[in-house]
């Protein structure tokens, strides 16, 4: 699903965020990307959904070279990838149903179908009963579940999560991980960036370790 070949990323001359990353994450896999803060986890994810371009090297996502696609095709790429962030990134002025439906709205899906599918996605994360609430009225764990519902509404081939449990207590974090496992069981490739070693051990999945921008293990 993700193939990286000798990927480098430099933000300035002195230091590089990523150096010579070569890795392969297979279709349907569930894996963790780990390492201390500043190891390059977030940068790598940003390269995958084309928020950033590598300084050198190539990245293939679902067989498509994302380092070579024109800007006009970026939205289409992002619609095939679900992304979950540590800070949830929900639209505060919209209800959670609207937040989830928004992804369909930008695709000009008819309003009725938007609501139906958004409701189904919220139901899958157990929040359909709060669909008219605004993000700030929910707990952190609930907000993250909304973000996951949004990430999954288009049935993405790939789900990227950047420290999705960083702001959550262990119980809620476990809940989120269980959700990810269910998603993975339905065939979606899941990549979770985290430095939570305990959780990684509990899950017993493949772990790719990054250290100072290089692949240290995995």
């Amino acid at each position: 699903m993700i193939q990286a070949f000798h990927v480098y990323k430099q933000y300035d001359r002195e230091s590089s965020a990523l150096s010579d990353i070569t890795l392969h994450i297979r279709k349907g896999e569930f894996c963790f990307l780990t390492g201390p803060s500043g190891a390059g986890k977030t940068t790598f994810l940003k390269l995958v959904f084309r928020e950033e371009l590598p300084s050198q090297g190539q990245i293939l996502v679902g067989g498509r070279n994302v380092t070579a696609i024109p800007d006009s095709q970026i939205p289409e790429l992002r619609r095939s990838i679900g992304v979950v962030f540590q800070d949830f990134k929900l639209l505060k002025r919209k209800t959670i149903l609207e937040n989830v439906a928004f992804v369909l709205r930008i695709l000009s899906v008819p309003a009725k179908e938007q609501r139906r599918r958004a409701f189904a996605a919220l139901k899958a994360v157990g929040l359909h009963h709060k669909m008219h609430a605004y993000p700030l009225q929910l707990s952190g764990g609930e907000q993250q579940r909304v973000a996951i519902a949004r990430a999954l509404i288009n049935d993405p081939m790939l789900l990227l999560a950047d420290e999705p449990t960083g702001n959550l207590d262990p119980e809620m974090a476990q809940e989120i991980m269980t959700l990810f496992q269910e998603v993975n069981a339905r065939g979606t490739t899941v990549v979770v960036a985290t430095h939570d070693r305990e959780m990684i051990q509990r899950m017993g999945k493949r772990v790719i370790g990054l250290e100072r921008g290089r692949v240290a293990s995995g």
């Binding site: 959904f49 939205p75 990134k89 928004f102 930008i106």
Partner: peptide, 16 residues
């Protein structure tokens, strides 16, 4: 700005 970033992240086109 936050809102616009989110829109771009979920795959909204520039025009949108």
């Amino acid at each position: 700005q936050d809102e616009l970033d989110i829109m771009r992240l979920v795959g909204a086109t520039r025009a949108y």
